[in-house]
Amino acid sequence: MALEVSHVVGGYSQIPVLKDISFDVKDGELVGLIGLNGAGKSTTINHVIGLLTPHKGTITLNGVTIDQDSQAYKQQIAYIPETPVLYQELTLREHLEVTMMAYDLDHDQAWATAHELLKTFRLDNKLDWFPANFSKGMKQKVMIVCAFLTQAKLFIIDEPFLGLDPLAVNDLLNLIEDRKKKGASILMSTHVLDTAQRYCDRFVLLHDGQVKTEGTLSELQAALPEAGESLNDIYLSMTKVDRA
């Protein structure tokens, strides 16, 4: 059990956005976090990466909570935010270097990985560029390269498919597949449901700060037999029930 979120109540202020949320992500598993705008996806992610502290409940990562040992907890996580954030004064090369420093990676080995990733995402000739010169998609690729440079056990990817070109989306999915095989877990939030349906092992459907359902596609289909075949249909029917 890599990530275990249990009975988490939390949010940005005293008013909870998340109302008693529980789910898990196992080793070598890609879990899709699905929900409308404002359903609580980003809040959930912010709790997992430690930006927010839960009011109630616990989040454990391979047996460690952030309170027990923040270093050991954070060491296991690599995060790709929805909106790319970069240090304005550091070049691409230096971004890679600080990532290596932060995760205490072996310099030569990490650079070998880095060069491969840079080539894949066609950034290898832009090592001395500043973030200001990158387009939004390029910045997102920098985020991906930095995250996959690490040997993290849990990758948290917030809405990765918007803004990336089709080639990069494909490359990212390959990277995810590769890390899964090596035993890493991935928690990914997205609105692109047909891609999610094809690649995710399991889904957590969030609605209004609660976990509506969770499980594999066939489990979801079994739970909501009238809803339809695709994840899209299931999701739409689920939100409709609530609206009616």
Partner: peptide
């Protein structure tokens, strides 16, 4: 200066 860069908080540094 770097408080608004999320990695300042996410990276495993004391």
């Amino acid at each position: 200066q770097y408080d608004d860069v999320v990695f300042t908080h996410v990276y495993p540094i004391l």
